[in-house]
């Protein structure tokens, strides 16, 4: 089970941002969503989380149609996300950012033993944020801000986790550690959907990939299949020269 998106179309005026797109993310797996800039990746995240109502199509969580639910209701069913343009609670400290989310979870799940303070401490430790726990979130550099957003979304104990370019702003070593972290999160039974431009991270972390281009899904499959897919190469490189494209994609791994 996990997340299923079926036949989603979004039109902004005359522009079709998403055209009949089907994607999915299974629990326990890291699923990649890639595509050139403007392909519609963030738009589909907004549709999935309910921030953008689609013109048509359906979003299902564990088989249940959530298309009509408000964003906060989807979140309560176990959907969490991070944002490409950071959406931190800037006037709160890093610790408080996580605590707000943990407290919200506990309000809805009265049986939770762990206090919000403990959840915050645990996640600060796990994501190596303890040193900056007292920093106001709007003072953080982008890379760290993304990790705080991840910590905040983990505090909601999601079943489905949508990550919008979580590694941009991080250096190579941080990115490697990050891939490992994503695998661990998925291993806990979370369906992770990852939008990312860093091909190293994507190819080394994802179990399955979906490729979007100009609002259409042009391919899906394992990393190997995608790497050799002619349509993907054309989309990424604007060329049909498969050999050259293959070379570039190979180099990135």
């Amino acid at each position: 089970m996990g997340l299923e998106v079926e036949g989603v179309t979004v039109r902004f005026g005359g522009h079709t941002a998403l055209n009949n797109v089907d994607i999915w993310a299974h629990e326990g797996k890291v699923t990649g969503l890639i595509g050139p800039n403007g392909a519609g990746k963030t738009t589909i995240f907004n549709v999935i989380t309910g921030l953008q109502p689609p013109s048509s199509g359906q979003v299902r969580m564990d088989g249940r149609d959530v298309s009509k639910l408000a964003p906060y209701r989807r979140a309560r069913l176990g959907m969490a996300r991070t944002f490409q343009r950071l959406e931190l609670f800037g006037s709160l400290s890093v610790r408080e950012n996580i605590q707000v989310a943990a407290a919200q979870y506990r309000r809805l799940h009265r049986g939770t033993k762990e206090t919000p303070q403990d959840t915050a401490a645990r996640l600060l430790h796990r994501l190596d944020l303890t040193a900056i726990a007292h920093v106001r979130a709007d003072q953080l550099p982008t890379g760290q801000g993304r990790v705080v957003e991840l910590a905040r979304s983990l505090a909601c104990r999601p079943k489905i986790l949508l990550l919008d370019e979580p590694a941009s702003g991080q250096d190579d070593e941080e990115t490697r550690g990050f891939g490992q972290l994503l695998r661990e999160i998925a291993a806990d039974g979370v369906a992770v959907l990852l939008v990312e431009h860093d091909m190293d991270l994507v190819m080394n972390t994802c179990d399955e990939l979906h490729v979007l281009d100009f609002g259409k899904k042009i391919a899906n499959g394992t990393c190997d299949e995608i790497r050799h897919n002619a349509a993907v190469q054309a989309a990424y490189l604007g060329t049909a020269d498969a050999a050259e494209a293959d070379e570039v994609l190979q180099e990135s791994v």
């Binding site: 906060y72 979140a75 944002f83 006037s91 709160l92 957003e149």
Partner: peptide
């Protein structure tokens, strides 16, 4: 307290509040 943190969070980012399950 917790309510105050929720209020500030709502001021900072209504969208993020929704994605952590808060009914703004």
């Amino acid at each position: 307290g917790e309510f105050g943190r929720r209020l500030l969070a709502m001021k900072d980012s209504p969208a993020a509040c929704a994605t952590i399950g808060m009914n703004h």
